[in-house]
Design a protein around this nucleic acid. Structure first.
Lengths: 143, 143
DNA sequence: CATAAACAGGTCATCCTTATCTGATTTAGA
DNA sequence: TCTAAATCAGATAAGGATGACCTGTTTATG
């Protein structure tokens, strides 16, 4: 019930790029240093984010990585799912035919509902908001 | 980002007990068969639930397991956390001093808020509701 | 006493996560 | 053209989590 370290790294890397500005090339090693991410580990994460179409890479001298879209067009959900795969709170939520008790199970709706809400929240946050620190709508308290 | 199979099994076992009625002794093997849970695996889960104080066990012939409390007094959250441990969407949500960027990180509040909401939902569902199928308040749709 | 059942624990295979390393490939600039 | 910088791709490995099984041990009932 937790996102992976990789996904966390990916988010922080994307945030760093968003702050650098769209179209601004940044070396992966710079991102790694600034965000305290193991450099060789970040390389793999960058590769995945590139395949997912979330950032562009430029090889060669003075190369680097940059956001593929405007930060406001990239949501937290996209980054998380690009690394960890689709969010699902329980196996049965994936679709039909997974659980034997499909249809009569009173628990599945609870998971489905909670998942929809979670996804909705992550989708509502984009990297322009994060880069500017405009997440004031979210409370900071943990009960 | 998913509860473990163990937690899912635990929930289904508790649901079965809730349906049987409080104080009604049920053999673990019966639960396993009815809920399609590997018997020897369920034994371990039952042990954890017992330690957590969620159910009582009786050894010997005609022994079995039964809910420790009234189903209405046992929440979905309790069962999940008894097996999987406390819910936390990201490592940093646990407390202070985990993340280097504590305080300036714009992402942490998002996780905290989403987690509070998730916990609140799981806490709002008890096993009396589940046993009677009274989860109509929850939508069944997945977006 | 014999039986049924929970209990404790150890073992095992498999996968996931995290992380590192290496070599190949590409490209900008001197 | 040559070199340095940087990504790309794949192999590797440690460690832990997960799911599952199996074997005794204890205990209450008949």
């Amino acid at each position: 019930m937790q996102i992976t370290r990789q996904a966390d790294y990916a988010i922080r890397a994307m945030l760093y790029l968003a702050r650098a500005g769209k179209g601004q090339r940044v070396a992966t090693s710079d991102v790694a240093e600034a965000q305290h991410i193991p450099p060789s580990f970040l390389a793999k994460i960058v590769s995945q984010l590139s395949i997912a179409g979330l950032l562009h890479t430029s090889r060669g001298a003075r190369g680097g990585i940059t956001l593929a879209r405007d930060p406001s067009q990239i949501t937290l959900l996209e980054v998380v799912e690009a690394i960890d795969g689709p969010i699902r709170l329980n196996e049965c939520v994936t679709g039909e035919g997974i659980c034997v008790f499909e249809g009569t199970c009173p628990i599945k709706p609870v998971w489905c509902d909670a998942q929809v809400e979670l996804v909705r929240r992550l989708k509502s946050v984009n990297f322009a908001m994060l880069a500017q620190g405009q997440q004031a709508e979210f409370a900071n308290a943990i009960g």
